[in-house]
Design a protein around this nucleic acid. Sequence first.
DNA 1: TACGGATGTGTGAACGTGCACACGTTAGGA
DNA 2: TCCTAACGTGTGCACGTTCACACATCCGTA
Lengths: 336, 336
Amino acid sequence: MKPAKRPTVHDIAAAAGVSRGTVSRVLNGGYVSAEARAAIETAMSDLGYVPNNAARALKMRRSQAVAFVALEPHSLFLDDPNIGAIMLGANAALSLADHQMVSLVVESARDTERVARYLSGGFVDGAIVVSARTKDPIIKVISDLSLPAAFVGHPPELDQHIPFVGIDNVGSARAITEHLRSTGRRRIGMIAAALDRDSGIDRLTGFRSALGDLFDEDLVADVPHYDYGSGVKGMRDLLEREPAIDGVFAASDAIAAGALEVLREAGRSVPGDVAVAGFDDSTWAVRTQPQLTTVHQPAKEIGSCAAQVVLRQLRGEPTDAGGQLLPTPLVLRDSA
Amino acid sequence: MKPAKRPTVHDIAAAAGVSRGTVSRVLNGGYVSAEARAAIETAMSDLGYVPNNAARALKMRRSQAVAFVALEPHSLFLDDPNIGAIMLGANAALSLADHQMVSLVVESARDTERVARYLSGGFVDGAIVVSARTKDPIIKVISDLSLPAAFVGHPPELDQHIPFVGIDNVGSARAITEHLRSTGRRRIGMIAAALDRDSGIDRLTGFRSALGDLFDEDLVADVPHYDYGSGVKGMRDLLEREPAIDGVFAASDAIAAGALEVLREAGRSVPGDVAVAGFDDSTWAVRTQPQLTTVHQPAKEIGSCAAQVVLRQLRGEPTDAGGQLLPTPLVLRDSA
DNA sequence: TACGGATGTGTGAACGTGCACACGTTAGGA
DNA sequence: TCCTAACGTGTGCACGTTCACACATCCGTA
């Protein structure tokens, strides 16, 4: 027993007493008489017709869909509060252009292969890739297919012709560190995270350049992730190495939140004894006590900007291969 | 200038000196001689051939893809820490069965229509739907298409034949409330959230039934969302209404975290003066001080279970239309 | 020798679309 | 009157694949 075979253009044409071509025209625009149009439309709603996108995609070489590829989703979905906002921003922009966003999750090598097949299978016209490492095999697939794409937050060094969207991590880190200095702090430390990624390295670079001669390698705690637990660990480390520390730049808001907890336990007031600055302006920033001074990451804008980049390529307009950095205003709250 | 037209089976066949049928056979299994197979395989790698899924889906009426439909993603992605884990669980299960998960985000009415087109367009074989309201138009689309589907966390009342996967909110809430009673608490309140959803209502129902005669309507604070801010607001409310309160069941861990903050400001010790219990066993639960006693939501299992349900339907096996509730063990930590 | 099965290969017909083209009709201007 | 243009409609083909079928070859056995 078949599951109620779906009607096709043929069925509609037969029911309305016209030919398939005419049905196609009322769907895609063209010259159709009013009566034919009416007959076809009633036939369509009677039979519950929906066009078969698979056939359309095959014929048109266009699926009206763009992939949102999330690599390393474990860390992303569970730790990074930005990924959701980026997705929402991308979805909104694609939606406006009548495109469907389909997000693909890559967890394992097995996934990589399957997603590669999916991307090359004609189901999507383009791709937005989040958090790729430079050597990720997905990059090669995309570049081999010359699939219109945009990378988020991470310039793909190898393939200069794939544009990316991100923020100026170096500049933002420098700016907020300078803010810490401007409040009179002298012994400023940093909890640096994810030094295996560009974002992590760049934030440390910015911190170092803002301090200049004041920079002291001993005041940098190196933690693996951007999460709360790493913040706890990093702050304990810093306090032990330099009890007189009076300023901390945390590489993320979650880290800053962990640092605040440690400082509270140690009896240091914030910002009285120690000024603390975060990064991201995520939901963490307003949940802590005191609320965090931090760097605003325009997550939604990043998403929508990446979508625009892909859409432009789809329209055949050339894009600035170099990529695009979005502004990251400082958000001054109570912690620094 | 075309973007380097992709090779098709025809091209491979021509390059290898065989017919399309033989190429198809090495792809899908069948009798092929060793030499033909070798010739075809070198031709494939030389030309960089990848099968066109759109054409395959058209012919086979199978796309090997399942949709993960996220409705109301604003609240979901930003507040609910479970959605990510559910996605990951579903993805893992689908991946094992060699299916692709594509997740679709529905934000607006415009999205609804587009996603409906997508679902009915033959790009997916089934759907997992998260957090649908009973009257959501997507439900109608799915049921009209008789698309194999599974609902997460919310039994769709109207269409009894669509199976769902969830947890026993009533029973879990009762169990954790009974735990609060067993520690000798007498004035137990609840911060109830999202009373416009089944999950919210059920948690309140379980709380009430566990208390029996002890239940006091005044000790229920009603807040809109499952988030931290709501917890702050709800706890302030409760403290004002009943200063002698000695136990609180929060409808989520985020709410419990907010409640802890208020209790700390009010100078109450936890669990000394007031016992606090949460719900979800999310990352919140171990970030708070003290760590939360809570109800474990098996988010990953929920995701993989929903995927299994869809896969079973795809294989033509009948499913228990009733749905499926997963166990939710109590996690005893320090807060109660 | 002839036959049947196993193995290997090629051919044509779909799947459901959109588009180019051909065809008809009508109206208007030269 | 004829040519052109705009409108309206039907038909064939292509998209890239899989599948059913036909055909060819080889081997073992009756």
